[in-house]
């Protein structure tokens, strides 16, 4: 990435806001119990980082997010492929899946707590359920919208079924699959935040709720910021993957 004058423009407003926030907090115009100064939040982060509490909680949250994504995303991807390639399988499973999709997955929280208690399974289940649908739907859509003229060309040039899948169908569906993945990453963090805030004994959400009990506003704000950073990080990784695998796409051709 290049840091020229134009890309610096994006930082003007955020940096300005932080400076104003710091100034107002220092003069005492914002009460510390409402919103602590940025420096206080950095100090809180430093304190928790030194004690190791911060890393433990980030690690646990990231682990839950990753496991849920792999399970839910994996099943969604597999079902999306199967239903995209086989009409029989689609007729059999798609109506049921669409029916389940109408249930907001966070509405399942009370039931999930009853089923799994508040341990890891409950959170991973919710995350998996949340990421399943965007990945399933976009994989299915991607495969269905692969250019049929290219498929015909592949057949005319003697490609086997596997050749057709790996050289024509899957690469053609990839842009859509990435849209699903990036959407799923957003849902993944959202689900985790809600699940950890409501019922947990570790993780970032727990750290925030615990801090609330002790009126540690700086730690609460810190947790929120870390969630934002993790979300941004996941999105950047997905973007990078997209760039690496879709370098043929006209949208990425400026390389």
């Amino acid at each position: 990435m290049k840091f020229d004058a134009k890309s610096l423009l994006a930082f003007v407003i955020p940096v300005g806001l932080i400076l104003v926030w710091q100034a107002l907090a220092s003069v005492g115009l914002i009460a510390t119990e409402v919103l602590p100064a940025p420096t206080a939040i950095v100090a809180a982060g430093w304190r928790l980082a030194l004690s190791g509490e911060l890393w433990t909680n980030i690690g646990i949250s990231a682990w839950r997010a990753a496991v849920g994504l792999v399970i839910g995303g994996g099943i969604g991807f597999a079902l999306g492929l199967t239903n995209g390639l086989s009409r029989l399988s689609e007729r059999l499973t798609d109506p049921t899946l669409q029916m389940i999709r109408t249930i907001p997955h966070l509405a399942m929280i009370p039931l999930v707590i009853l089923w799994f208690g508040i341990d890891e399974t409950a959170k991973i289940f919710l995350v998996a359920l949340g990421v399943f649908f965007p990945i399933y739907l976009n994989t299915l859509h991607g495969i269905r919208t692969v250019d049929s003229q290219l498929v015909e060309m592949g057949r005319a040039y003697g490609m086997s079924s596997w050749g057709l899948f790996s050289r024509v169908v899957l690469p053609g569906a990839l842009p859509s699959i990435f849209v699903g993945l990036r959407y799923a990453l957003g849902i993944m963090w959202l689900t985790l935040i809600v699940a950890e805030t409501i019922s947990a004994s570790s993780g970032l959400g727990y750290m925030a709720m615990n801090a609330r009990e002790f009126m540690l506003v700086d730690v609460v704000v810190l947790s929120i910021l870390i969630y934002a950073l993790l979300g941004k990080l996941a999105d950047s990784i997905a973007k990078w993957l997209e760039r690496a695998t879709l370098s043929w796409h006209p949208a990425y051709l400026h390389v």
Partner: peptide, 13 residues
């Protein structure tokens, strides 16, 4: 071998 009205090249290759 057939040549179609459209080039039908694989954009990702």
């Amino acid at each position: 071998r057939i040549m179609f009205q459209e080039p039908r090249l694989l954009p990702w290759q």
